[in-house]
Design a protein around this nucleic acid. Structure first.
Length: 479
RNA sequence: UCCUCAGUAGCUCAGCUGGUUAGAGCAUCUGACUGUUAAUCAGAGGGUCACUGGUUCAAGUCCAGUCUGAGGAGCCA
Protein backbone atom coordinates (compact mmCIF):
# COMPACT_ATOMS: atom_id res chain seq x y z
CA UNK A 1 0.00 0.00 0.00
CA UNK A 2 1.19 3.44 -0.87
CA UNK A 3 -0.52 5.23 1.94
CA UNK A 4 0.73 3.79 5.22
CA UNK A 5 1.54 7.19 6.53
CA UNK A 6 1.30 8.28 10.14
CA UNK A 7 -0.60 11.51 10.82
CA UNK A 8 1.74 14.12 12.22
CA UNK A 9 -0.81 14.94 14.90
CA UNK A 10 -0.61 11.37 16.19
CA UNK A 11 3.09 11.01 15.63
CA UNK A 12 3.87 14.01 17.83
CA UNK A 13 2.23 12.23 20.77
CA UNK A 14 4.48 9.14 20.53
CA UNK A 15 7.27 8.41 22.95
CA UNK A 16 10.34 8.44 20.68
CA UNK A 17 11.85 4.95 20.55
CA UNK A 18 13.40 4.50 17.12
CA UNK A 19 10.04 3.58 15.61
CA UNK A 20 10.17 3.23 11.85
CA UNK A 21 7.56 5.54 10.31
CA UNK A 22 6.50 6.94 7.00
CA UNK A 23 5.15 10.48 6.92
CA UNK A 24 3.85 12.60 4.08
CA UNK A 25 3.13 16.26 3.92
CA UNK A 26 4.13 19.65 2.62
CA UNK A 27 7.30 21.57 3.48
CA UNK A 28 6.73 24.67 5.59
CA UNK A 29 10.42 25.63 5.84
CA UNK A 30 13.76 24.02 5.16
CA UNK A 31 16.69 25.30 7.23
CA UNK A 32 20.43 24.74 6.96
CA UNK A 33 19.99 21.95 4.38
CA UNK A 34 19.15 19.81 7.41
CA UNK A 35 15.85 20.65 9.05
CA UNK A 36 12.52 20.25 7.31
CA UNK A 37 9.42 21.57 9.05
CA UNK A 38 6.80 19.23 7.59
CA UNK A 39 3.04 19.81 7.86
CA UNK A 40 0.26 17.46 6.82
CA UNK A 41 -2.78 19.49 7.85
CA UNK A 42 -3.69 17.29 10.79
CA UNK A 43 -2.40 19.96 13.16
CA UNK A 44 -0.69 23.34 13.01
CA UNK A 45 2.36 21.79 14.63
CA UNK A 46 5.09 20.82 12.21
CA UNK A 47 7.15 17.69 12.34
CA UNK A 48 10.89 18.28 12.30
CA UNK A 49 12.53 15.97 9.78
CA UNK A 50 16.32 15.88 10.07
CA UNK A 51 18.56 15.09 7.11
CA UNK A 52 22.06 14.14 8.06
CA UNK A 53 24.60 16.37 6.29
CA UNK A 54 26.28 14.75 3.33
CA UNK A 55 23.91 11.78 3.20
CA UNK A 56 21.53 13.22 0.63
CA UNK A 57 22.61 14.49 -2.72
CA UNK A 58 22.46 18.12 -3.65
CA UNK A 59 19.96 17.72 -6.45
CA UNK A 60 17.44 16.33 -3.96
CA UNK A 61 18.11 19.03 -1.35
CA UNK A 62 17.45 21.73 -3.96
CA UNK A 63 13.99 20.33 -4.56
CA UNK A 64 13.00 20.54 -0.90
CA UNK A 65 11.34 23.92 -1.26
CA UNK A 66 8.46 25.60 0.53
CA UNK A 67 5.25 23.62 -0.07
CA UNK A 68 6.89 20.78 -1.96
CA UNK A 69 5.12 17.50 -1.18
CA UNK A 70 7.32 14.85 0.43
CA UNK A 71 7.25 11.24 1.47
CA UNK A 72 9.73 10.70 4.27
CA UNK A 73 10.75 7.38 5.79
CA UNK A 74 12.72 7.51 8.99
CA UNK A 75 12.95 6.72 12.68
CA UNK A 76 11.44 8.62 15.58
CA UNK A 77 14.08 9.90 17.98
CA UNK A 78 14.16 12.37 20.88
CA UNK A 79 15.10 15.82 19.59
CA UNK A 80 18.31 17.34 20.89
CA UNK A 81 17.01 20.74 19.73
CA UNK A 82 14.83 23.00 21.86
CA UNK A 83 11.63 23.50 19.90
CA UNK A 84 10.23 19.96 19.97
CA UNK A 85 10.11 16.76 21.95
CA UNK A 86 10.83 14.45 19.05
CA UNK A 87 11.94 14.46 15.45
CA UNK A 88 12.36 12.10 12.51
CA UNK A 89 15.79 11.08 11.38
CA UNK A 90 15.21 10.54 7.68
CA UNK A 91 16.41 7.39 5.95
CA UNK A 92 14.82 8.34 2.65
CA UNK A 93 13.14 11.40 1.20
CA UNK A 94 10.99 11.24 -1.91
CA UNK A 95 9.70 14.35 -3.65
CA UNK A 96 6.08 13.63 -4.54
CA UNK A 97 5.46 17.09 -5.96
CA UNK A 98 7.82 19.98 -6.61
CA UNK A 99 6.96 23.55 -5.75
CA UNK A 100 8.68 26.32 -7.69
CA UNK A 101 10.05 28.67 -5.02
CA UNK A 102 10.21 31.60 -7.43
CA UNK A 103 6.48 31.41 -7.96
CA UNK A 104 5.06 30.06 -4.71
CA UNK A 105 3.32 33.03 -3.09
CA UNK A 106 3.34 32.09 0.61
CA UNK A 107 6.27 33.04 2.81
CA UNK A 108 7.02 32.13 6.41
CA UNK A 109 5.61 35.43 7.65
CA UNK A 110 2.30 37.15 8.31
CA UNK A 111 0.20 37.74 5.24
CA UNK A 112 -2.84 39.98 5.10
CA UNK A 113 -6.16 38.15 5.06
CA UNK A 114 -7.10 40.15 1.96
CA UNK A 115 -4.09 38.79 0.09
CA UNK A 116 -4.80 35.25 1.23
CA UNK A 117 -8.39 35.59 0.00
CA UNK A 118 -7.00 36.09 -3.50
CA UNK A 119 -5.19 32.77 -3.23
CA UNK A 120 -7.94 30.92 -1.42
CA UNK A 121 -6.79 27.67 -3.02
CA UNK A 122 -3.51 27.89 -1.11
CA UNK A 123 -4.55 29.60 2.09
CA UNK A 124 -5.43 26.31 3.80
CA UNK A 125 -1.67 25.80 4.06
CA UNK A 126 -1.35 28.66 6.55
CA UNK A 127 -1.70 28.18 10.29
CA UNK A 128 -4.65 30.55 10.54
CA UNK A 129 -6.74 28.84 7.89
CA UNK A 130 -5.62 25.41 9.03
CA UNK A 131 -7.08 26.18 12.44
CA UNK A 132 -10.21 27.89 11.10
CA UNK A 133 -11.16 25.00 8.86
CA UNK A 134 -10.44 22.32 11.43
CA UNK A 135 -12.70 24.22 13.84
CA UNK A 136 -15.32 24.60 11.11
CA UNK A 137 -15.25 20.86 10.60
CA UNK A 138 -15.56 20.20 14.34
CA UNK A 139 -18.58 22.50 14.59
CA UNK A 140 -20.27 20.79 11.63
CA UNK A 141 -19.64 17.40 13.17
CA UNK A 142 -20.93 18.57 16.57
CA UNK A 143 -24.13 19.83 14.96
CA UNK A 144 -24.97 16.39 13.61
CA UNK A 145 -23.97 14.77 16.89
CA UNK A 146 -26.18 17.12 18.92
CA UNK A 147 -29.27 16.49 16.86
CA UNK A 148 -28.64 12.79 16.38
CA UNK A 149 -28.26 12.29 20.14
CA UNK A 150 -31.65 13.95 20.61
CA UNK A 151 -33.47 11.86 18.04
CA UNK A 152 -33.70 14.50 15.32
CA UNK A 153 -33.94 13.37 11.72
CA UNK A 154 -31.54 14.98 9.26
CA UNK A 155 -33.72 16.14 6.42
CA UNK A 156 -32.49 17.17 2.98
CA UNK A 157 -34.67 19.96 1.69
CA UNK A 158 -34.48 20.99 -1.98
CA UNK A 159 -31.84 23.35 -3.29
CA UNK A 160 -34.04 24.31 -6.24
CA UNK A 161 -37.29 25.78 -5.10
CA UNK A 162 -40.36 27.30 -6.70
CA UNK A 163 -41.41 29.29 -3.68
CA UNK A 164 -40.14 32.56 -2.37
CA UNK A 165 -42.79 32.30 0.28
CA UNK A 166 -40.64 33.46 3.09
CA UNK A 167 -39.60 36.61 1.28
CA UNK A 168 -36.20 36.14 2.85
CA UNK A 169 -34.36 38.01 0.16
CA UNK A 170 -33.47 38.44 -3.48
CA UNK A 171 -33.43 35.21 -5.47
CA UNK A 172 -31.02 33.54 -7.82
CA UNK A 173 -33.10 32.31 -10.73
CA UNK A 174 -32.63 28.78 -12.00
CA UNK A 175 -33.43 28.39 -15.68
CA UNK A 176 -32.49 26.60 -18.87
CA UNK A 177 -34.18 29.23 -21.04
CA UNK A 178 -31.84 30.76 -23.64
CA UNK A 179 -30.73 34.05 -22.13
CA UNK A 180 -30.38 35.74 -25.49
CA UNK A 181 -33.88 34.78 -26.59
CA UNK A 182 -36.21 34.43 -23.64
CA UNK A 183 -39.72 33.23 -24.61
CA UNK A 184 -42.33 35.82 -23.69
CA UNK A 185 -46.05 35.81 -23.01
CA UNK A 186 -48.36 38.20 -24.83
CA UNK A 187 -48.16 40.66 -21.96
CA UNK A 188 -44.34 40.71 -22.19
CA UNK A 189 -43.64 38.59 -19.09
CA UNK A 190 -41.36 35.55 -19.29
CA UNK A 191 -43.11 32.37 -20.43
CA UNK A 192 -41.89 29.89 -17.86
CA UNK A 193 -44.03 27.14 -19.40
CA UNK A 194 -41.11 26.60 -21.76
CA UNK A 195 -38.60 26.41 -18.92
CA UNK A 196 -37.18 23.15 -17.54
CA UNK A 197 -39.59 22.93 -14.60
CA UNK A 198 -42.39 24.62 -16.54
CA UNK A 199 -42.48 27.31 -13.88
CA UNK A 200 -40.27 29.96 -12.34
CA UNK A 201 -37.66 28.46 -10.04
CA UNK A 202 -34.83 29.72 -7.87
CA UNK A 203 -32.09 28.59 -5.52
CA UNK A 204 -33.47 28.12 -2.03
CA UNK A 205 -33.32 30.95 0.50
CA UNK A 206 -34.38 28.66 3.33
CA UNK A 207 -35.44 25.08 3.94
CA UNK A 208 -37.74 26.02 6.76
CA UNK A 209 -41.13 25.57 5.14
CA UNK A 210 -40.20 22.10 3.89
CA UNK A 211 -38.67 21.26 7.28
CA UNK A 212 -42.02 22.09 8.89
CA UNK A 213 -43.59 19.44 6.67
CA UNK A 214 -41.08 16.91 7.98
CA UNK A 215 -41.56 17.96 11.59
CA UNK A 216 -45.28 17.23 11.40
CA UNK A 217 -44.50 13.59 10.66
CA UNK A 218 -41.15 12.85 12.29
CA UNK A 219 -41.56 15.16 15.25
CA UNK A 220 -38.07 16.60 15.26
CA UNK A 221 -36.04 17.30 12.14
CA UNK A 222 -33.19 19.55 11.12
CA UNK A 223 -31.64 20.70 7.90
CA UNK A 224 -28.01 21.64 7.35
CA UNK A 225 -27.34 22.78 3.83
CA UNK A 226 -26.44 25.60 1.50
CA UNK A 227 -28.64 28.64 1.14
CA UNK A 228 -28.53 31.40 -1.46
CA UNK A 229 -29.33 35.09 -1.30
CA UNK A 230 -28.78 37.38 -4.28
CA UNK A 231 -28.65 40.49 -2.12
CA UNK A 232 -26.06 43.09 -2.92
CA UNK A 233 -24.67 42.98 0.60
CA UNK A 234 -21.05 43.97 0.98
CA UNK A 235 -20.31 43.35 4.62
CA UNK A 236 -18.11 41.18 6.79
CA UNK A 237 -21.17 39.15 7.84
CA UNK A 238 -22.92 38.32 4.53
CA UNK A 239 -22.41 35.76 1.80
CA UNK A 240 -24.44 35.03 -1.33
CA UNK A 241 -23.95 31.31 -0.60
CA UNK A 242 -23.88 30.20 3.00
CA UNK A 243 -24.77 27.18 5.10
CA UNK A 244 -27.72 27.19 7.42
CA UNK A 245 -28.95 24.90 10.16
CA UNK A 246 -32.72 24.85 10.56
CA UNK A 247 -34.26 22.58 13.20
CA UNK A 248 -38.01 22.29 13.25
CA UNK A 249 -39.83 20.65 16.15
CA UNK A 250 -43.42 19.49 16.60
CA UNK A 251 -44.98 19.89 20.06
CA UNK A 252 -42.69 22.84 20.83
CA UNK A 253 -43.56 26.33 21.98
CA UNK A 254 -41.36 29.42 21.99
CA UNK A 255 -39.93 28.63 25.43
CA UNK A 256 -38.89 25.12 24.30
CA UNK A 257 -37.44 26.65 21.18
CA UNK A 258 -35.26 29.09 23.12
CA UNK A 259 -34.09 26.32 25.45
CA UNK A 260 -33.08 24.14 22.51
CA UNK A 261 -31.29 26.97 20.71
CA UNK A 262 -29.30 27.89 23.81
CA UNK A 263 -28.38 24.25 24.53
CA UNK A 264 -27.44 23.79 20.90
CA UNK A 265 -25.12 26.77 20.70
CA UNK A 266 -23.43 25.84 23.96
CA UNK A 267 -23.06 22.21 22.88
CA UNK A 268 -21.25 22.93 19.65
CA UNK A 269 -19.02 25.58 21.23
CA UNK A 270 -18.13 23.14 23.99
CA UNK A 271 -17.35 20.48 21.42
CA UNK A 272 -14.85 22.78 19.70
CA UNK A 273 -13.33 23.91 23.01
CA UNK A 274 -12.89 20.27 24.06
CA UNK A 275 -11.66 18.89 20.75
CA UNK A 276 -9.82 21.80 19.11
CA UNK A 277 -8.07 23.39 22.05
CA UNK A 278 -4.79 23.78 20.16
CA UNK A 279 -6.42 25.49 17.21
CA UNK A 280 -8.45 27.77 19.44
CA UNK A 281 -5.36 28.67 21.43
CA UNK A 282 -3.62 29.56 18.19
CA UNK A 283 -6.58 31.65 17.03
CA UNK A 284 -6.76 33.34 20.44
CA UNK A 285 -3.14 34.32 20.13
CA UNK A 286 -3.60 35.44 16.55
CA UNK A 287 -6.50 37.68 17.52
CA UNK A 288 -4.54 39.14 20.40
CA UNK A 289 -1.67 40.05 18.07
CA UNK A 290 -4.09 41.58 15.61
CA UNK A 291 -5.80 43.63 18.30
CA UNK A 292 -2.50 45.12 19.43
CA UNK A 293 -2.79 47.28 16.31
CA UNK A 294 -6.12 48.69 17.49
CA UNK A 295 -6.71 51.54 19.91
CA UNK A 296 -7.49 50.31 23.43
CA UNK A 297 -11.21 51.05 23.35
CA UNK A 298 -11.69 48.95 20.23
CA UNK A 299 -10.09 45.83 21.65
CA UNK A 300 -12.19 43.03 23.06
CA UNK A 301 -12.20 42.90 26.83
CA UNK A 302 -12.08 39.13 26.72
CA UNK A 303 -9.71 36.94 24.79
CA UNK A 304 -11.26 34.47 22.37
CA UNK A 305 -11.04 31.32 24.49
CA UNK A 306 -12.07 33.29 27.56
CA UNK A 307 -15.12 34.56 25.71
CA UNK A 308 -16.12 31.03 24.69
CA UNK A 309 -15.74 29.73 28.24
CA UNK A 310 -17.78 32.68 29.48
CA UNK A 311 -20.60 31.90 27.06
CA UNK A 312 -20.59 28.27 28.20
CA UNK A 313 -20.81 29.21 31.86
CA UNK A 314 -23.56 31.83 31.71
CA UNK A 315 -27.25 31.73 30.93
CA UNK A 316 -28.23 33.76 27.92
CA UNK A 317 -30.21 36.84 28.94
CA UNK A 318 -33.85 36.54 27.92
CA UNK A 319 -35.93 39.67 27.41
CA UNK A 320 -38.99 40.67 25.45
CA UNK A 321 -38.89 43.12 22.59
CA UNK A 322 -40.87 45.54 24.80
CA UNK A 323 -38.23 45.30 27.54
CA UNK A 324 -35.50 45.84 24.95
CA UNK A 325 -37.16 49.05 23.80
CA UNK A 326 -37.46 50.22 27.42
CA UNK A 327 -33.79 49.51 28.12
CA UNK A 328 -32.75 51.36 24.97
CA UNK A 329 -35.05 54.30 25.72
CA UNK A 330 -33.68 54.62 29.25
CA UNK A 331 -30.03 54.16 28.24
CA UNK A 332 -27.51 56.96 28.63
CA UNK A 333 -26.56 56.30 25.03
CA UNK A 334 -30.03 57.30 23.96
CA UNK A 335 -30.26 60.26 26.34
CA UNK A 336 -26.95 61.57 25.05
CA UNK A 337 -28.24 60.96 21.51
CA UNK A 338 -25.34 58.70 20.64
CA UNK A 339 -27.43 56.38 18.47
CA UNK A 340 -27.30 57.18 14.79
CA UNK A 341 -30.84 55.85 14.49
CA UNK A 342 -32.95 57.35 17.29
CA UNK A 343 -35.16 55.18 19.48
CA UNK A 344 -38.60 56.07 18.18
CA UNK A 345 -40.47 53.75 20.51
CA UNK A 346 -42.48 50.56 20.41
CA UNK A 347 -42.92 49.12 16.93
CA UNK A 348 -39.58 50.19 15.51
CA UNK A 349 -37.20 47.64 14.06
CA UNK A 350 -33.97 47.29 16.01
CA UNK A 351 -30.92 48.52 14.11
CA UNK A 352 -27.65 46.67 14.46
CA UNK A 353 -26.24 49.47 16.64
CA UNK A 354 -29.15 48.92 19.06
CA UNK A 355 -28.56 45.19 19.14
CA UNK A 356 -24.87 45.78 19.73
CA UNK A 357 -25.64 48.12 22.59
CA UNK A 358 -27.83 45.53 24.31
CA UNK A 359 -25.35 42.72 23.85
CA UNK A 360 -22.00 44.44 24.20
CA UNK A 361 -22.70 47.37 26.53
CA UNK A 362 -25.78 46.55 28.59
CA UNK A 363 -25.79 42.78 29.22
CA UNK A 364 -22.30 41.89 28.02
CA UNK A 365 -23.37 38.37 27.05
CA UNK A 366 -25.62 36.63 24.52
CA UNK A 367 -29.20 37.91 24.60
CA UNK A 368 -32.43 36.33 23.39
CA UNK A 369 -35.11 38.84 22.42
CA UNK A 370 -38.63 37.49 21.99
CA UNK A 371 -42.16 38.63 21.14
CA UNK A 372 -41.54 41.12 18.37
CA UNK A 373 -44.24 43.32 16.80
CA UNK A 374 -45.96 41.28 14.10
CA UNK A 375 -45.48 44.05 11.53
CA UNK A 376 -41.72 43.55 11.40
CA UNK A 377 -41.73 39.75 11.25
CA UNK A 378 -42.61 36.99 8.77
CA UNK A 379 -46.12 35.71 8.05
CA UNK A 380 -45.63 32.23 9.47
CA UNK A 381 -44.84 33.33 13.03
CA UNK A 382 -47.46 32.53 15.65
CA UNK A 383 -49.58 35.45 16.76
CA UNK A 384 -49.64 36.12 20.48
CA UNK A 385 -52.86 36.75 22.38
CA UNK A 386 -52.14 40.47 22.71
CA UNK A 387 -52.88 40.90 19.02
CA UNK A 388 -49.74 42.97 18.59
CA UNK A 389 -46.79 40.61 18.81
CA UNK A 390 -45.66 37.27 17.43
CA UNK A 391 -43.81 34.43 19.17
CA UNK A 392 -40.48 35.18 17.50
CA UNK A 393 -37.04 35.09 19.02
CA UNK A 394 -33.61 36.31 17.92
CA UNK A 395 -30.35 35.37 19.58
CA UNK A 396 -27.71 38.08 19.52
CA UNK A 397 -24.06 37.51 20.36
CA UNK A 398 -21.21 39.97 20.94
CA UNK A 399 -19.25 40.93 17.86
CA UNK A 400 -21.54 39.25 15.33
CA UNK A 401 -25.06 40.39 16.16
CA UNK A 402 -27.95 38.18 15.13
CA UNK A 403 -26.88 34.57 14.95
CA UNK A 404 -30.23 32.82 15.33
CA UNK A 405 -33.69 33.80 14.20
CA UNK A 406 -36.62 31.61 15.11
CA UNK A 407 -40.23 31.43 16.13
CA UNK A 408 -43.14 29.31 17.14
CA UNK A 409 -44.98 28.74 13.88
CA UNK A 410 -48.62 29.63 13.37
CA UNK A 411 -50.42 26.28 13.52
CA UNK A 412 -53.98 27.67 13.39
CA UNK A 413 -55.23 27.60 9.80
CA UNK A 414 -57.60 30.59 10.10
CA UNK A 415 -54.98 32.82 11.73
CA UNK A 416 -52.36 31.83 9.16
CA UNK A 417 -54.66 32.46 6.21
CA UNK A 418 -55.67 35.81 7.64
CA UNK A 419 -52.04 36.85 8.07
CA UNK A 420 -51.15 35.72 4.55
CA UNK A 421 -53.96 37.83 3.15
CA UNK A 422 -52.78 40.86 5.12
CA UNK A 423 -49.25 40.41 3.77
CA UNK A 424 -50.30 39.59 0.19
CA UNK A 425 -48.82 36.12 0.13
CA UNK A 426 -50.60 33.99 -2.50
CA UNK A 427 -52.19 30.91 -0.94
CA UNK A 428 -52.14 28.91 -4.15
CA UNK A 429 -48.32 28.64 -4.09
CA UNK A 430 -48.35 27.36 -0.53
CA UNK A 431 -51.26 24.92 -0.60
CA UNK A 432 -48.99 22.22 0.79
CA UNK A 433 -47.87 24.41 3.66
CA UNK A 434 -51.48 25.12 4.57
CA UNK A 435 -52.40 21.42 4.27
CA UNK A 436 -50.22 20.71 7.30
CA UNK A 437 -52.61 22.91 9.28
CA UNK A 438 -55.57 20.98 7.90
CA UNK A 439 -54.47 17.46 8.81
CA UNK A 440 -53.42 17.07 12.39
CA UNK A 441 -51.92 20.46 13.02
CA UNK A 442 -49.78 20.80 16.14
CA UNK A 443 -47.94 23.56 17.94
CA UNK A 444 -44.44 23.61 16.52
CA UNK A 445 -41.41 25.81 16.43
CA UNK A 446 -37.97 26.13 14.90
CA UNK A 447 -35.05 28.38 14.22
CA UNK A 448 -32.35 29.09 11.69
CA UNK A 449 -28.69 29.51 12.48
CA UNK A 450 -26.17 30.85 10.00
CA UNK A 451 -23.32 28.36 10.13
CA UNK A 452 -20.59 30.77 9.02
CA UNK A 453 -21.64 33.23 11.71
CA UNK A 454 -21.16 30.69 14.47
CA UNK A 455 -17.82 29.74 12.90
CA UNK A 456 -16.90 33.42 13.00
CA UNK A 457 -17.93 33.65 16.62
CA UNK A 458 -15.92 30.59 17.65
CA UNK A 459 -12.80 31.36 15.60
CA UNK A 460 -12.84 35.12 16.16
CA UNK A 461 -12.41 35.77 12.44
CA UNK A 462 -13.67 39.26 11.64
CA UNK A 463 -14.69 38.63 8.04
CA UNK A 464 -17.14 35.90 7.06
CA UNK A 465 -15.18 35.38 3.82
CA UNK A 466 -12.42 33.87 5.92
CA UNK A 467 -14.49 31.08 7.47
CA UNK A 468 -15.83 29.52 4.24
CA UNK A 469 -13.48 27.84 1.80
CA UNK A 470 -14.46 29.71 -1.35
CA UNK A 471 -16.67 32.69 -0.53
CA UNK A 472 -19.39 33.81 -2.91
CA UNK A 473 -20.03 37.53 -2.69
CA UNK A 474 -21.26 40.19 -5.14
CA UNK A 475 -18.78 40.31 -8.00
CA UNK A 476 -16.78 37.33 -6.79
CA UNK A 477 -17.16 33.65 -7.67
CA UNK A 478 -13.51 32.69 -8.22
CA UNK A 479 -12.45 29.09 -7.58
C1' U B 1 -26.66 50.11 -3.04
C1' C B 2 -24.79 54.48 0.11
C1' C B 3 -20.68 56.89 3.05
C1' U B 4 -15.35 56.92 4.28
C1' C B 5 -10.42 55.31 3.33
C1' A B 6 -6.87 52.84 0.33
C1' G B 7 -4.24 50.78 -4.35
C1' U B 8 3.98 51.86 -5.26
C1' A B 9 8.71 45.04 -6.25
C1' G B 10 6.05 38.24 -5.16
C1' C B 11 4.39 40.06 0.24
C1' U B 12 4.21 44.22 4.05
C1' C B 13 5.09 49.20 3.54
C1' A B 14 8.06 54.33 3.13
C1' G B 15 8.23 58.02 -0.70
C1' C B 16 7.48 65.79 2.50
C1' U B 17 4.74 71.89 -0.30
C1' G B 18 4.98 68.23 -8.02
C1' G B 19 11.67 68.47 -9.57
C1' U B 20 17.83 64.15 -11.43
C1' U B 21 18.53 57.15 -11.95
C1' A B 22 11.42 55.33 -7.16
C1' G B 23 13.53 52.99 -1.64
C1' A B 24 13.41 49.43 2.91
C1' G B 25 12.32 44.71 5.33
C1' C B 26 10.78 39.89 4.09
C1' A B 27 10.62 36.36 -0.08
C1' U B 28 13.65 34.61 -4.46
C1' C B 29 18.68 33.56 -6.61
C1' U B 30 24.30 32.96 -5.67
C1' G B 31 27.99 32.10 -1.96
C1' A B 32 29.47 31.23 3.27
C1' C B 33 28.07 28.69 7.74
C1' U B 34 26.04 23.82 9.49
C1' G B 35 21.55 21.50 15.64
C1' U B 36 18.36 25.10 13.02
C1' U B 37 13.16 26.93 15.16
C1' A B 38 10.03 33.04 10.61
C1' A B 39 18.23 30.45 11.41
C1' U B 40 22.34 33.84 10.55
C1' C B 41 26.06 36.61 7.41
C1' A B 42 27.64 38.67 2.42
C1' G B 43 26.14 39.79 -2.52
C1' A B 44 22.64 39.92 -6.82
C1' G B 45 18.22 40.19 -9.67
C1' G B 46 13.30 42.11 -9.32
C1' G B 47 8.80 48.17 -10.80
C1' U B 48 3.36 49.61 -16.94
C1' C B 49 3.78 53.57 -9.14
C1' A B 50 -4.35 49.88 -10.40
C1' C B 51 -6.39 51.70 -15.33
C1' U B 52 -7.95 55.80 -18.71
C1' G B 53 -7.85 60.80 -19.61
C1' G B 54 -6.46 65.80 -18.03
C1' U B 55 -3.49 70.11 -15.73
C1' U B 56 1.89 71.35 -16.00
C1' C B 57 8.30 72.91 -18.68
C1' A B 58 7.91 68.53 -15.35
C1' A B 59 3.06 63.83 -12.21
C1' G B 60 4.07 57.97 -7.96
C1' U B 61 2.70 62.98 -6.00
C1' C B 62 -2.52 67.53 -8.36
C1' C B 63 -7.70 66.92 -10.91
C1' A B 64 -11.76 63.78 -13.22
C1' G B 65 -13.69 59.09 -14.41
C1' U B 66 -13.34 53.70 -14.09
C1' C B 67 -11.85 49.18 -11.64
C1' U B 68 -10.38 46.53 -7.22
C1' G B 69 -10.02 46.04 -1.91
C1' A B 70 -11.05 47.44 3.25
C1' G B 71 -14.06 49.72 7.29
C1' G B 72 -19.00 51.38 8.44
C1' A B 73 -24.39 51.48 7.04
C1' G B 74 -28.82 49.24 4.83
C1' C B 75 -30.84 44.17 3.88
C1' C B 76 -30.33 39.74 6.72
C1' A B 77 -28.46 34.41 8.79
Amino acid sequence: MFNKRVLIKNLLNLEPDNQKVSVMGWVRTFRNDQFIALNDGSTNKNLQVVLELGKFDNELLKRITTSAALKVDGVVIPSPGKGQKLEIKATSVEILGDSDPEKYPLQPKKHSLEFLREIAHLRFRTNTFGSVFRVRHALAFAIHEFFNDRGFLYMHTPIISASDAEGAGELFHVTTLPLNNVPKNEDGSVNFNEDFFQRSTNLTVSGQLEAELGATAFGNVYTFGPTFRAENSNTARHLAEFWMIEPEMAFYDLEDNMDLAEDFIKYIIKYAVDHNREDLEFLTQRLEEEEKQLPLEKRNEMKLLGKLEFVLQHQFERITYTEAIDILTESNYNKKKKFQFPITGWGMDLQSEHERYLVEKHFKKPVIIRNYPKEIKAFYMRQNDDGKTVAAMDILVPGIGEIVGGSQREERLDKLEQRMKEMNIPEKDLWWYLDIRRYGTVPHAGFGLGFERIVQFVTGMGNIRDVIAFPRTPGNAEF
